[in-house]
Simulated scan of single mutants.
Amino acid sequence: MTKFLLAVHVIAAIVAVGPVTVAASMFPPAARRAFGAPGDADALATTRLLHRICRVYAVVGVAVPVFGFATASNMGVLGDTWLIVSIVLTALAAGVLALLVLPRQSAVLETAEGDGVVEEVPGERATAAGAATVRLAMVTGIFNLLWATVTVLMIIRPGSTTGA
């Protein structure tokens, strides 16, 4: 049963977390392209699609810790330090995604669609949008770094019996 749970946990991580990290990383440059060419429907559609991928796969990503806890329980490692650190980092990554990345993507998308509050000064929209996408890229990088750290901990697992 442990091997099954571990396989589902790893597959869920690849299928759910992978697309979020990639789409979230692609969003800021796509948004900058949408701001650079306000009439470009394709650039705006790409930005919308990337945001939707992030939202949908964030929900699907809940399966990763669920199966992770089940696997850890079966392995008897729930109290191990590496796992507790991984749980904390996973919670931080989820918080960064839910509280910082997704809302900022929504705000940038609203502005790109013309629904956001934009100054009337020519060029101000692109400048403000550029700054917003830079901040979003930074927060997205933190999110990705947290997941990368969790992945490394899951592979290295101090005290592991895999012999690696």
Rank of each mutant, 00 (worst) to 15 (best):
A129N: 09
L44C: 12
I87Q: 07
L50N: 12
A91W: 07
H51Q: 15
G18N: 00
L83Y: 10
A23W: 04
A132P: 09
G61T: 09
T111N: 08
M26K: 14
A93V: 11
A107H: 10
Y57R: 04
L83P: 09
V22W: 14
L78M: 15
P38E: 05
V121L: 15
V66N: 01
S106T: 14
P19I: 03
V60D: 00
T127F: 07
E120V: 12
A31M: 14
V85Q: 01
F27N: 04
L49T: 12
D42C: 11
L97D: 00
T71Y: 06
V62G: 05
I53Q: 03
R55C: 10
R125T: 10
H51G: 14
A126G: 07
R104V: 00
L44I: 13
V118N: 08
V56I: 15
G18C: 00
I53L: 07
P38K: 11
A37N: 12
M26N: 08
G68N: 08
Y57F: 13
V77M: 11
L78S: 11
V101S: 04
A70I: 11
A132K: 07
A70L: 15
P29I: 03
V64P: 08
G18S: 00
C54H: 00
L92M: 15
G114C: 11
Y57T: 01
S106D: 13
T90N: 06
V96K: 14
A63H: 07
V64G: 06
A34M: 08
A30T: 03
T133D: 08
A24S: 13
R52G: 09
A72E: 01
G76E: 06
A24E: 04
D80A: 13
P28Y: 02
G79M: 00
V77E: 08
A43H: 03
I87C: 10
L102K: 05
G68H: 06
F67M: 04
A131G: 11
V64M: 04
F35C: 08
L97A: 03
A72P: 06
V66E: 00
V121C: 10
R125F: 10
V66P: 02
